[in-house]
Amino acid sequence: MSQSKEIIISKSSIPIFAIVLLAMIFVAGLFVVGFDQGHIFSLVIGEEAFADLYIHELTHDMRHAAGFPCH
């Protein structure tokens, strides 16, 4: 008679897609908070974004507080 039971296997390997996804989130988030000077919105609204600086202003206080160069 056959019996079924569960085996717990400990695996540390991370799938490549998970590594790529987390690396992309890391780079994108860092750029938005630390370095954007209108670049992201310029993809949608053009040159005007470099004057409006919506993301820069939104992240301004965190940018200073977290040690990123701001202006």
Partner: peptide, 10 residues
Amino acid sequence: PHQETTPSFN
């Protein structure tokens, strides 16, 4: 998340 549970049949 590092642990996976797999069914085993004897």
